[in-house]
Design a protein around this nucleic acid. Structure first.
Length: 934
RNA sequence: GCCCGGGUGGUGGAAUUGGUAGACACGCAGGACUUAAAAUCCUGUGAGCAGUAAUGCUUGUACGGGUUCAACUCCCGUCCCGGGUACCA
């Protein structure tokens, strides 16, 4: 008896999975004869909780694509690995004393076992783990390449530091100014000559080079989290608190590694046009990069010391230059000290003290609060020559633009509020567009009170002002980016050590031959608290030789993840990060599937590393991912019980208004829908054994909420349970059937029976009533062929457009139709097995072998869609009159429109509807509809 | 506040991008098989009205307008929901 029963499913699935492993069916090698296709999943962080039903959603989709492409004749690279460094393992070590290496390996084993059950076609021989020294050797090696690089703005690409040294020795830095406007030589110079360069000693030279390196060490403002004892990246800080734990975060200066990603801002931005990411994903990256075009304008400053200095502002609206009523600089700005007058000194000091006292959280919470202080100095407007007061205010950020702005209250909301608050005069340059009650940032006003610009439309005035400023040597057009350089140091143990050696406080690259610099074994994972990482607890390792020290920080998890997709191409290479032949062959990732939460960090860093490696000549492509699909998150559906305060009595959710209760999460598996399994609940925990209940209509109804799936909320549904009940094929198809891949949705097993029934129905097509395998070789009927071709055409189209939910529906329709036709013909069923195999690989392999094919993989190609068949086939055209459908008529699809029109208009039933009136026009949409307009 | 998505039956969701709205599935109702239940199969299922019935008509894709022979789809306005971002000059 071969019913599609639970036992039979288990037998089939175990049989084929064993077969795949034994025969290494999914092992992939370079094959120049075939086109390649690279399908990549975002590799998981192996958390202790194991896999829940949300994880496989994207993996199933990518597996379908990989199998489909393989059937289509592509050589498919479909690897999997683990992002195994990271904070949770370290926290776990702190709490339980288990070394991160140990817990990480255990977790990876669990993940691999669970992934194995779902029937993925990964080439496990290519597995990578970022915490493996043979892997992070190359993470460190790439870091050193970045350290040994600078960004040549003239060529718009990275070059080796040696080329920079040659240039500096030849011409100083006049043609290649410091990338950061704040950089200076040791003696305070922005520009130096070739001869000056030659005079510098080794340390000074190294310091200067550091200002150019793409991986550099500098004192930077970092987000310091006292509770975690570590520095956090900007994207790890949310609303002024740490993203893990929610601990307060303050700004602090520390000597940190950074990546000069800002040099790549423009290329990261323009590169988006060449890759297929969703618009929203591109928008998130564009916002993050935050390009804004405007002008830099220089104002002479008149202080008590005379006109001794100048200040530069950045503005996107140089056209409003005549509307400047005041200037504002950031409290941290260097010039504050220089320009403050004696009369204002006390007030300024008090204000600076106040600003310093405010934490990030305060500042964020009170963004609308207006504060500020006059410096006593004035700025001279380069166009109008008008003198305006210079103020300090925290609403101007030191880190953006020049840290100083020109205040135009009639056109800018914040400037307006500032002027009103401090009762500063407001000049109106936009006539009736400004009504005195709020600022108006229009571009369309005709300028007034604007000297030479009077009468011009604002948007047209922008280039005019810029060119006038250029003539006055008081400004130029300028582009600014919001994006900051990426902090690359973490005060943590479980990460890649920096492969550098400090001599006289300057870092030098380690020899390639000495890599990897392995993470020393330790049992003390506590941060040193001073700001140094746990590695500082191992002095022998830090100060490993006289006069030489190592870095006590490690790299962020982003480091290992920034290039793992390259390592998959040649994972066992111990001479290079991957050999050139593999890199050129596998090339870009054709489809990358993963969550949208990595929009700014991981995806930007990966794109950066690939661009740098490209510039240095290691890669022939400069975008890693051709296409990105963001699968939605599967959320949990939690259940609650309501306990009477202080009692062991539980109140049904409809009645809680009458009592004082506390909600408690209860395991989802104990509820059937919303109804609690009271007996099961009592048995679930000893302290529930004597529970009492206040029921409604004899039932206990739980509360519910849609929340993130997590252990602590008891709403985790494990894929193993679903596989145990229905098999992996049903799980795979059900997760696809749930809805569009990109959409987030709560997990629910409503409807999983429908998918299971489909598979059984499909199985039964190949079996007679008694469960015996039975197909016949008769020629298919037109109806059967129609169903077959329609299904294959639609399914192909759906897979190509990542619309897997509708693919599943198509298969269901197909099975229904063939069941209705009682079709068990080999010629129809064989192609369907091939078409379905990406979705339900186990059952399809079984059927394939029952059909008599002795092959380990289904390598048939999809039968070409028979366009000919579709053309001769007919379509029931709805005939509408003035847009309203009145009848249907059957026509061949290849009938000329004129012929159809003649037949339609001659039809008696149509004449009845039109009262014999001749139509104004007849619209015929081939394959769709005929519309008669009266 | 700003920038993206989105709003379709009792539910999840289809609609080939302007061409018969509600495919497919769940749920529900009725029926068949059964001593009975489960399982399975069949039929019906947006709402409203008329009809014994086949069927016919009206209405219907968050709300209000518009364009069109024809609008879930395009345009204008409003209201909700989700995501991103936030003193970025």
């Amino acid at each position: 008896m071969a019913d599609y029963s639970k036992e039979e499913i288990r037998r089939i699935e175990e049989k084929w999975r064993a077969n795949w492993i034994k025969n290494r069916v999914y092992k992939t090698d370079i094959d120049p004869a075939k086109p390649k296709y690279y399908v990549l999943d975002m590799f998981p962080y192996p958390s202790g909780a194991g896999l829940h039903v949300g994880h496989p959603l994207g993996y199933i989709a990518s597996d379908i694509v990989a199998r489909y492409k393989r059937i289509k004749g592509f050589n498919v690279l479909h690897p999997m690995g683990f992002d195994a460094f990271g904070l949770p393992a370290e926290q776990y070590a702190l709490e339980h004393g288990i070394h991160p290496a140990v817990s990480t390996q255990q977790n990876i084993e669990t993940f691999k076992r669970q992934l194995g059950q779902i029937g993925f076609c990964y080439d496990w021989s290519r597995e990578v783990q970022t915490c493996d020294p043979s892997y992070y050797k190359w993470t460190q090696w790439i870091f050193l390449q970045i350290f040994d690089s600078w960004y040549n703005r003239r060529k718009q690409q990275a070059g080796r530091i040696s080329t920079l040294i040659e240039i500096l020795a030849l011409e100083g830095n006049t043609n290649h100014p410091f990338p950061s406007s704040k950089s200076r030589t040791r003696d305070g110079k922005e520009v130096f000559s070739a001869s000056e360069w030659k005079e510098f000693n080794e340390k000074t030279k190294q310091e200067i080079l550091m200002h150019y390196r793409l991986a550099y060490l500098a004192y930077t403002d970092v987000n310091w989290c006292e509770a975690l004892g570590t520095v956090l990246a900007n994207d790890e800080v949310i609303n002024g608190v740490s993203y893990r734990g929610g601990f307060p975060v303050v700004k602090r200066q520390m000597r940190q590694w950074s990546l000069r990603i800002t040099e790549y801002a423009e290329r990261l931005l323009s590169g988006l046009d060449q890759i297929d990411f969703s618009e929203s994903m591109k928008d998130i990256q564009r916002n993050w990069i935050g390009k804004s075009e405007g002008a830099r304008i220089e104002f002479q400053v008149k202080s008590e010391k005379g006109t001794v200095t100048s200040m530069t502002v950045f503005t996107t609206r140089p056209d409003t230059i005549y509307g400047v009523d005041f200037m504002v600089v950031a409290p941290e700005h260097d010039m504050v000290k220089q320009i403050t007058s004696k009369a204002q000194q006390q007030e300024v000091d008090a204000y600076l003290k106040y600003v310093e006292s405010r934490s990030e959280i305060d500042r964020m919470a009170e963004v609308k609060k207006i504060t500020g202080c006059f410096t006593g100095a004035y700025a001279i407007n380069p166009m109008s020559k008008k003198e305006t007061p210079i103020w300090i205010s925290e609403y101007v950020l030191a880190g953006y633009g020049t840290g100083a702005i020109m205040g135009v209250p009639c056109g800018d909301e914040r400037d307006y509020k500032f002027a009103k608050h401090f009762k500063l005069p407001i000049t109106n340059i936009i006539g009736s567009h400004y009504d005195g009650s709020e600022a108006n940032p229009t571009f369309d006003a005709i300028l007034e009170n604007s000297g030479s610009l009077n009468g011009m439309v604002m948007r047209d005035a922008i280039p005019v002002v810029v060119s006038e400023l250029e003539k006055l040597v008081a400004g130029a057009s300028q582009i600014n980016y919001k994006m900051r350089d990426a902090g690359w140091s973490r005060q943590r143990y479980w990460g890649e050590p920096f492969p550098v050696v400090y001599r006289e406080d300057m870092p030098y690259a380690m020899d390639e031959a000495d890599l990897p610099l392995t993470l020393p074994d330790s049992d003390n994972f506590k941060p040193s608290g001073s700001g140094e990482g746990p590695l500082a607890n191992i002095p022998d390792w830090i100060s490993f030789a006289p006069g030489q020290k190592r870095d006590s920080s490690t790299m962020p998890t982003h480091a290992g993840a920034a290039w793992y997709f390259l390592r998959y191409m040649d994972p066992h290479n111990d001479k290079e990060f991957a050999d050139r032949k593999s890199l050129d062959y596998w090339n870009q990732v054709d489809v990358y599937i993963g969550g949208s939460e990595h929009a700014v960090a991981h995806l930007l860093y990966s794109r950066l590393w690939v661009k740098i490696l490209h510039d240095l000549g290691y890669l022939n492509f400069d975008e890693p991912f051709k296409k990105l699909i963001n699968q939605g998150k599967i959320t949990g559906d939690s259940r609650f019980v309501y306990r009477l305060r202080g009692k062991n009595t539980y109140v049904s959710s409809g009645l809680i208004g009458q009592f004082e209760t506390d909600p408690l999460h209860v395991d989802v598996s104990l509820a059937n829908g919303l109804e609690l399994d009271v007996e099961g609940f009592k048995k679930s925990r000893p302290d529930y054994a004597n529970a009492e209940f206040v029921l409604e209509n004899g039932k206990y109804i739980c509360g519910s909420a849609i929340e993130k799936m997590s252990k602590s909320k008891y709403n985790v549904v494990n894929p193993d349970d679903i596989i145990g009940r229905y098999g992996a094929d049903t799980l795979r198809m059900y997760e696809m059937f749930l809805g569009p891949l990109e959409q987030s949705k709560p997990w629910s097993t409503n409807g999983i029976d429908g998918v299971y029934k489909f598979l059984r129905k499909f199985w039964n097509l190949f079996h007679d009533g008694s469960g015996t395998f039975s197909v016949n070789g008769d020629a298919p009927s037109p109806d059967e062929l129609r169903t077959l071709h329609k299904t294959i055409k639609k399914v192909q189209h759906d897979i190509e457009s990542f619309s897997f939910n509708t693919s599943v529906s198509e298969f269901m329709i197909c099975a229904n139709e063939l069941t209705g036709l009682k079709c068990n013909k080999r010629q129809v069923l064989e192609p369907l097995v091939v078409a379905l195999s990406p979705f339900a690989p186990h059952v399809c392999e079984e059927l394939w072998s029952l059909l008599g094919y002795d092959r380990t993989i289904l390598e048939a190609t999809y039968p070409a869609v028979e366009e000919k068949f579709l053309q001769v086939s007919s379509h029931a055209y709805p005939i509408s009159i003035n847009g309203k459908v009145r009848a249907t008529m059957e026509f061949a699809l290849d009938m000329p429109a004129a012929e159809m029109e003649r037949i339609v208009l001659a039809s008696e039933s149509i004449l009845k509807w039109t009262d014999g009136k001749p139509p104004r026009k007849v619209i015929i949409v081939p394959g769709r509809i005929v519309n008669i307009v009266l």
